[in-house]
Design a protein around this nucleic acid. Sequence first.
DNA 1: TCACTTATCGGTAACGGTTACTGATTAGTT
DNA 2: AACTAATCAGTAACCGTTACCGATAAGTGA
Lengths: 125, 125
Amino acid sequence: MQTRNTVQRNAVLHTVQAMKNHPTAEEIYLEISRIHPNISRGTVYRNLNFLAEQGVIQKVLIPDAADRFDFNISEHYHFKCSECGRVFDADIPYQRNINEKVADKHGFSVTGHMIVFSGICNSCK
Amino acid sequence: MQTRNTVQRNAVLHTVQAMKNHPTAEEIYLEISRIHPNISRGTVYRNLNFLAEQGVIQKVLIPDAADRFDFNISEHYHFKCSECGRVFDADIPYQRNINEKVADKHGFSVTGHMIVFSGICNSCK
DNA sequence: TCACTTATCGGTAACGGTTACTGATTAGTT
DNA sequence: AACTAATCAGTAACCGTTACCGATAAGTGA
């Protein structure tokens, strides 16, 4: 199956790369709509998942909230403000060793982990 | 506001404490239905949230899946099998220090964090 | 022991976020 | 330029969960 370079797909990619605030699919849709008023939510969702699948962007799963999308595809963690709901990067080193600890303890084959911190962000306190 | 000791609330509590597999609300509902066939899903959800709010049980948020409920209210981590979707405890020490690292780095007031490991469980590999 | 109040109930509708379906387009090949 | 199938816009359906409603029953106080 060949993949195509559509204006919609490019718009989704460039919008994610331009928005550096871990936007939700809806926020990305609203942003793109300003330039492509006819784009469909379904198209945005489809391409976000496609691009994340390809590894060009990253899908960030936030508990109890809509998924976020990140131009930064490196392994890193996030902080969610319980007041305003905004998501920020948590710049601490990736804890690669804890994967092995869990693997050793339980025998699972551990492929990765995610960490989400919670608390109050600077502008909320 | 007084709180009441209803048969439904007790059934929800005891069922969570009896099921040690991080059940979802639906699984708890199905289990209780065997003894209380008329209980409503809404009642199960309401009481699960109530009991979690009280700290009697723990709500475990799993990305991209239904919430789980845990009789074990201590701080601990979880592993989700990407094959069968089951959730297991990940018995490694609670990393209390990383909260401070994030707080120091960003200035946020960090109240906690969650870690979810992913990979393949023993019965799936 | 019996009202009385109101927390909680069962049943169902609505919600938010996301995916699946449809027939119509359109990108990339030949 | 013609062709084919990936992708589109639009909309319906999905899943997990919460909100609503009139009915029920748990705990008080007389």
